[in-house]
């Protein structure tokens, strides 16, 4: 099949893969990519429940505006679309029932 837009997937080289913790689960991600990206690749799109009605929420604007992808690190709120993956990172979700640190 003729492709006018080439597939570059195989030509992308990424930094090493590490695991970090998301709500006590080990998630693999590449060092230096955003936590939101790693989580969505790992099947974790649901990041929090909306405080008023418990509606499911995940990354939305992906540029630090909407605050939908908020997670906690060290008990403080962080935008997961701006937080980079590193080894030993421990992230807690704002899902209902998730353990706040």
């Amino acid at each position: 099949m003729i492709r006018l837009v080439p597939n570059h997937a195989a030509r992308v080289q990424r930094a090493r893969s590490v695991t970090f913790t998301f709500d006590d689960e080990a998630i693999s991600g590449f060092v230096g990519e955003t936590v939101a990206t790693a989580l969505q690749r790992g099947g974790h799109r649901l990041l929090r429940h909306a405080p008023e009605d418990g509606g499911a929420r995940g990354a939305f604007c992906c540029m630090g505006l909407c605050q939908e992808c908020l997670v906690q690190v060290g008990g403080r709120p962080v935008e997961s679309c701006r937080l980079l993956v590193s080894a030993d990172l421990t992230v807690t979700s704002l899902k209902r029932g998730a353990q706040s640190q």
Binding site: V12, R14, E33, T34, T37, Q40, R41, R45, L46, L47, A50, G55, A56, R57, G58, A59, F60, C61, C62, M63, C81
Partner: peptide, 20 residues
């Protein structure tokens, strides 16, 4: 609001910064 719905501009951010 369903997780998995992202902005078009948000998608370009993912492409450009993480190539994801």
């Amino acid at each position: 609001t369903t997780p998995g719905v992202i902005g078009l501009a948000g998608a370009t951010a993912m492409f450009k910064q993480d190539l994801a």
